[in-house]
Simulated assay, not measured.
Amino acid sequence: MAKETMLHFLDEQLTKKMSDYEVAIDWDNRNHTIELVFLLFAENKEQWLIDDATGVGSEEEVIEFEDSILLYDPVKSKIDPDDYLACLPYAGKKGMKKSELVGLVDYIKEILDEGQGDLLDFLDQEETDVFELHFDEARYAQIVAAYKGPDQMIPYPSY
């Protein structure tokens, strides 16, 4: 059996815990990054004109919101943190601790559960100007600290 890597582990965790959401993993082996991309959908019943982050307006019946979290090698990766909900470093070839990866998937589920409700509220309330997801480092650390089980390193995939 092949050695378990961050990609394989994340894919298993996301498949098991995130069946209610559309989530994808984008591995950029040249930049040494793993991007976890997630989508939220909501019906735009009033067909409000909604501008996205780049200023493009849409009155579509269904609004699609996309965001992502980036896992990166602080030594080798070139990133712009403003492009992501959060950027989390990993330890080169050693990867990340299992507790951090399990905690991340659990926290993404929490973010999306809350975000789905916030998106629906955003579309139902005329006075709300902006919708965005929020990543709270302290909450993530709390979830990681609550992990029970062996906490070995899950290595970054080799290519």
Rank of each mutant, 00 (worst) to 15 (best):
L40N: 08
P74I: 15
V23N: 05
E22L: 05
G117S: 05
S99T: 00
K109A: 12
D11Q: 13
Y159I: 13
D52F: 11
K3H: 08
Y147G: 11
G57K: 06
E59C: 05
K3P: 12
I50P: 08
E61A: 09
T33V: 11
F131P: 15
L71W: 04
Y84K: 15
I79S: 07
S19G: 10
Q152M: 05
E12M: 03
I25Y: 05
H134D: 13
P74F: 15
M96L: 11
D106E: 08
G95V: 06
I108V: 14
T5C: 06
K94Q: 07
E35L: 04
Y21V: 01
K93W: 02
T128H: 06
D124C: 07
H32A: 12
F38I: 01
A138F: 06
N44M: 10
T5Y: 09
E12P: 11
M96Q: 06
G149F: 07
H134F: 08
P157T: 00
D106H: 11
A24S: 06
D106K: 12
D136M: 01
K17I: 01
I143V: 15
C87K: 11
S77T: 01
I143N: 08
G55S: 04
R30L: 09
V105H: 02
Q142R: 01
Q47E: 13
L40I: 09
Q142E: 15
L85S: 06
M153I: 01
E12R: 09
T128C: 04
P89D: 01
Y72P: 00
T5K: 14
D124M: 12
K76P: 04
S19W: 01
D11H: 08
V144H: 15
E127V: 02
Y140G: 02
L71Y: 03
L101N: 03
K98V: 04
A42K: 04
D136E: 13
I143W: 07
C87H: 06
R139W: 03
Y90Q: 02
E43A: 08
I34T: 04
L49K: 05
I69D: 08
W27Y: 14
G55T: 06
Y72C: 07
M96D: 08
I25H: 01
I34H: 03
R30H: 12
E35N: 05
V62A: 03
G95L: 02
E22V: 09
V56M: 10
S19V: 07
D83Y: 05
K76T: 10
L14R: 13
P89H: 00
I34N: 10
E61M: 09
L88I: 15
E60F: 04
N29W: 12
Y21L: 03
K45A: 14
V75C: 02
M96Y: 01
I111N: 10
I69F: 01
D136N: 10
P157D: 00
L104T: 02
E60A: 14
S158Q: 11
G103V: 09
M153W: 14
E114I: 13
T33P: 03
V105A: 01
E60K: 03
D106F: 07
K17N: 12
D80S: 10
E61L: 13
A141R: 10
V144S: 03
F9H: 12
L85I: 04
L133T: 15
L49F: 11
E114K: 13
M153F: 13
F135G: 02
T128G: 02
K3N: 03
Y72Q: 04
